[in-house]
Each structure stands twice: as structure tokens, then as C-alpha cells.
């Protein structure tokens, strides 16, 4: 089956003081309707830049974007800016970490949703207003008819996040990209927001690309997982595959280093060192300076993302051994 959203060999670089900064180095992703794909990775690994390139909201130039992004088989990267804006605006919804920055502070939330429906759907003012109230109700804003006139700053953090979700789903997009949608929220509010997104997805059959650095969130909601490190996908598989037996030493280290609320461990496993600077990536495998399984070839040869049995893949020279060692 043709995936809903397909990203192939995506590359993004920015000009830097000492040459280009390669933020995304050949990322591939596939998202099917109704599925949730988690893009997992730590700060600076290129998750947001990937999302921005898919969404078409990077400033080009200075950014340079190469590769392919298709939605239902249609290439987006070669569209004219006008067509691109229409497709991204109507078929891909986006939710960010910081709702305050995404919402316009000088318009009421009702006006923002109404405006979107009028411009993109050509709705009458009255219809758009009615729909805005429905949408606020859908994201469980209490007393939505009274709150449509309120401004973003009059809502709490969790409510603003839900207002942004209302905006993102207003045009019933085929794909929702959620970039750390709950990172700034407390756990109790995070649970509410994730539950809401899951529910909307069940109803609408949207594909969800969920960007996060939180392994717990991934385990709770993802169907498939792509692990990112230094601008590359280093491992890909179903959520069960990844958590039951990672096939890349970085994923292995991440899982081992995480303290757990349901467990007391003596000492945590700690991955030594820190993620590399994307302006100065090491030769060979970008993880080799921190990897406990490193061998000489890792220092010279960049491992490609190669398939493993059961449709999973890993970018490690020793992926078969890693998988063998981690599988319970």
C-alpha cells in the first residue's frame, strides 16, 4: 500500500560560520493512515528541522533542502510556493511545543479559528464561528461558547495546547505533525493532551507523526518508531520491536539509562560523552565516540540504515550482534 506520507533521503543544511551545518542527513520515513510514527531523538538531533522541511516552513534560503517528500504519492518539494502552501496548509496540520508562540496574541482564539475556516474553506462568518465553538468543544475547552472571545494569554498552558490542536485539526488534515506537543506540560496535563490526540486520530483516521525525546510517551502511543541521532535515522521498527530488543547501541543505551517510576535500580547505565555538534560530525559512525561496541571499522566507515528481519532496520555495522544481545 502506498504510504500516506513518505520522506526519502531528506537532507537539510544551514550555512554556518565554518561551513554548512548538516542538520538532517538523509532521513527516510513512512507514515500510513491511522498510524502513529514516533520520531525519537535528543536535543539537536534534527527532529524539528525534519518536521519543518516536511511541512514546508523552512526559509529556503538560507536553509538548503534536498530529497523527496510525498503525500499520497504527490511530490511536495518541487511544488510552487503557492501550491505547497495550499497542500501543507490543508492536508498537514501541525502542533508545536510552544503554543504561545504559535498562536497570535492579538486575536481571540475564536477569531483565529474562524479566519482559517473562512480563508481556506470559504465558510460564512456565522458558520465558521459555529464550527469554531464545536472545535473548542472537541478539544474539551469548558464552556466553549463563552471562551471563543478569549485571547491566548487568558488560557492555561494545557488549554492553549488544546486550542492549538483545535486549529491544527480545523481543516481535517490527513497528517498531523506534533512536535513535542506535551514537553512543556505537567504530567497530568500531558496525559489529557495525549489522550485527546489519540481520540481525534481514532475518529478521523489521521496519520500522526509524533516528535518527542520522551521514551515513555513513545511507549504509550506509538505504533512505529524511528530513532534519530545526529541528523540520521539510526534505527526503525515497531514500538514493540524497539523496546523489546533494540538493534542499535544508541537506542540500547537510551533504554538502559532511563530511570523508571515503577522500578528502583541500583545504578543507571550512563552513555558516556554528549551528542556531537552537527557542524563537526566525527568520521565514520556518528555514535562511535560514545559507543561501547565500537570496533575499528566504526571509526572510518559510516554505517547505512540496513534492513533486519521483520521489516526493521538499523544503521550499525554490528546490528545483528546488537539485536542478538538485546533480545530477551
Amino acid at each position: 500500500m502506498e504510504p500516506l506520507l513518505k520522506v526519502t533521503d531528506l537532507r537539510v543544511s544551514f550555512p554556518g560560520p565554518s561551513g554548512p551545518v548538516h542538520a538532517v542527513n538523509g532521513v527516510g520515513l513512512e507514515l500510513a493512515a491511522g498510524r502513529t510514527l514516533a520520531l525519537l531523538g535528543e536535543s539537536g538531533s534534527g527532529k524539528s528541522v525534519t518536521a519543518q522541511a516536511v511541512m514546508g516552513i523552512l526559509d529556503v534560503p538560507p536553509a538548503r533542502v534536498a530529497g523527496s517528500v510525498t503525500l499520497r504519492g504527490r511530490e511536495l518539494l518541487t511544488l510552487s510556493p503557492r501550491d505547497r502552501d495550499r497542500v501543507s496548509g490543508e492536508e498537514i496540520g501541525m502542533v508545536f511545543q510552544d503554543a504561545m508562540a504559535a498562536l497570535n496574541p492579538v486575536f481571540s482564539v475564536g477569531d483565529q479559528i474562524t479566519e482559517l475556516l473562512r480563508v481556506r474553506r470559504g465558510m460564512s462568518r456565522a458558520d465558521a464561528r459555529r464550527r469554531a465553538v464545536e472545535l473548542l468543544d472537541r478539544v474539551r475547552i469548558p464552556a466553549p461558547a463563552n471562551r471563543v472571545k478569549d485571547y491566548p494569554h487568558q488560557f492555561s498552558g494545557g488549554m492553549r495546547q488544546r486550542v492549538m490542536i483545535a486549529l491544527a485539526i480545523a481543516l481535517e488534515p490527513a497528517v498531523l505533525i506534533a512536535d513535542e506537543p506535551t514537553t512543556a506540560l505537567d504530567v497530568t496535563v500531558q496525559a489529557q493532551v495525549m489522550e485527546l490526540i489519540a481520540e481525534i486520530q481514532r475518529d478521523s483516521g489521521m496519520g500522526l507523526l509524533l516528535i518527542t525525546h520522551d521514551l515513555g510517551v513513545v511507549a504509550e502511543v506509538a505504533d512505529d518508531v524511528a530513532v534519530m541521532y545526529a541528523g540520521r535515522i539510526v534505527e526503525r521498527g515497531t514500538v514493540e520491536q524497539i523496546f523489546d530488543g533494540p538493534a542499535h547501541p544508541y537506542t540500547e543505551g537510551l533504554l538502559a539509562s532511563m530511570p523508571r517510576v515503577d522500578r528502583t535500580d541500583e545504578e543507571l547505565y550512563a552513555i558516556p560523552g554528549a551528542p556531537p555538534n552537527p557542524a563537526r560530525l566525527p568520521t565514520g559512525c556518528p555514535f562511535h565516540l560514545r559507543c561501547h561496541r565500537v570496533t575499528p571499522e566504526c571509526r572510518s566507515d559510516l554505517p547505512a540504515l540496513e534492513p533486519l528481519p521483520a521489516h526493521r532496520a538499523s544503521a550499525c555495522h554490528h546490528r545483528t550482534e546488537v539485536l542478538h544481545a538485546t533480545q530477551r
Binding site: 492555561s156 498552558g157 494545557g158 488549554m159 504530567v187 497530568t188 496535563v189 500531558q190 496525559a191 489529557q192 489522550e195 520522551d214 521514551l215 515513555g216 510517551v217 513513545v218 511507549a219 504509550e220 506509538a222 514500538v239 514493540e240 523496546f243 533504554l255 532511563m258 523508571r260 517510576v261 515503577d262
Partner: peptide, 24 residues
């Protein structure tokens, strides 16, 4: 609070009892 913390174990997804607190 504890029930809201995501547990990094996909297998336990279905049988977890989660208390969703209303409001902020």
C-alpha cells in the same frame, strides 16, 4: 500523578489504569 507518568513498556499499555485528572 503517578498514574499519568508514561511507562516505557509498550506491553503494559493496555492494562494500565490511568486516572485522568480534569482541569489544571
Amino acid at each position: 500523578l503517578l498514574s499519568a507518568v508514561p511507562v516505557p513498556e509498550p506491553a503494559s499499555r493496555t492494562n494500565r489504569q490511568r486516572i485522568l485528572l480534569a482541569g489544571d
